[in-house]
């Protein structure tokens, strides 16, 4: 009914001459507010670009890949180790969290008794909102010492992957749960009447029908993992080095910004804003990808 609301005529439209038109004022006040809201994203992009320009104009983007190492005090700005850190931590956690999250959603929808399923969903919703600094703190005081016993130094890529997995699992579980919920009941009844087992139904009926929702969930999750800062900063050790094993410490792009922004000046500060701009670009690309997937697929939701 959305399209109707703005068509509902009201008396103030009919006798405009007789009195001051408050509706006109209201709509324009609201439009200005919405314009401010809509402008925030543009403002963010503009300021990231403004602060990045001093570096980009003088040095371009070459130094980020060709300098010997990351050492801003000597004027060396190689981002490669941090890019690897972000890439490996994100990929690792998404690879682990995706099956766990999807199985969690399956549990809610098809395996658990209704009461337990609802309780579990509540739990996942809670997990999704718990402050990242709490996860990071737990990782620092519990997880890192545990890994340290297994293979020093403890603060490592592995710790980062585990913490990120715990943090992004709820996102993918909730999106998967929602897309499973949209699979029409007839599909499931049909599959059951054809004698498919539960697991067979899930693999051959539910997954294909919920595919686009699952893809969108994974994309959202990738964005979350790339952008996560505090928890990763607390458990990863933050050594600027390309890791050679899963027990090596890493530093992600986001952690790098959080660690150095406080004292960064001149080119250094500008370089950090360039990495922020890069993060922003990745997020916009992911949002576009999610949009494309949602628009181009999902025949299920259309004809149900």
């Amino acid at each position: 009914m959305t399209w109707l609301k703005d068509k509902i005529s009201s008396p103030s439209k009919l006798n405009k001459s007789s009195q001051f038109d408050w509706d006109w004022v209201l709509v324009w006040v609201l439009r200005i507010m919405a314009a401010i809201t809509g402008a925030i994203v543009l403002l963010i992009v503009i300021f990231l670009i403004l602060e990045s320009l001093p570096f980009l104009q003088v040095k371009g983007i070459g130094p980020f890949f060709t300098d010997q190492r990351w050492n801003p005090t000597e004027g060396l700005y190689n981002f490669t180790p941090m890019l690897w850190g972000t890439l490996l931590a994100t990929m690792g956690s998404v690879v682990v969290a995706t099956p766990l999250g999807i199985i969690s959603a399956l549990f809610c929808q098809y395996y658990a008794p209704v009461a337990i399923g609802n309780l579990y969903r509540r739990l996942i919703e809670l997990l999704a909102g718990i402050p990242s600094v709490v996860y990071g703190f737990w990782g620092l005081v519990v997880l890192v010492p545990l890994i340290n016993r297994l293979h020093p130094p403890g603060a490592s890529l592995l710790a980062g992957i585990i913490i990120l997995t715990i943090m992004i699992l709820p996102t993918i579980a909730l999106v998967a749960d929602a897309s499973f919920g949209k699979v029409p009941q007839e599909y499931l009844l049909g599959a059951t009447s054809l004698g498919l087992s539960k697991w067979g139904t899930i693999c051959n009926v539910v997954f294909p029908a919920a595919k686009s929702g699952l893809f969108t969930g994974v994309i959202l999750t990738v964005g979350r993992a790339i952008g996560e800062t505090m928890a990763v900063l607390m458990v990863c050790g933050n050594v600027v080095e390309t890791p050679s094993s899963i027990f090596d410490p890493i530093r992600t792009l986001t952690a790098n910004i959080a660690l150095e922004m406080a004292y960064a000046l001149g080119n250094h500060r500008s370089a950090l804003f360039v990495s922020g701009l890069a993060l922003m670009a990745i997020i916009v690309l992911l949002a576009v990808a999610a949009e494309v997937i949602t628009v181009t697929s999902s025949p299920v939701t259309k004809n149900s």
Binding site: A34, A35, V41, F47, I257, F273, M280, I283
Partner: peptide
């Protein structure tokens, strides 16, 4: 407005930090 809100919802918090610091 809707589109920009969708993007805003996904912006990493550290980027908000950079923006807040600059602006």
């Amino acid at each position: 407005v809707r589109r920009s809100l969708d993007i805003l919802a996904g912006v990493p918090s550290i980027v908000f930090g950079l923006f807040g610091n600059a602006f």
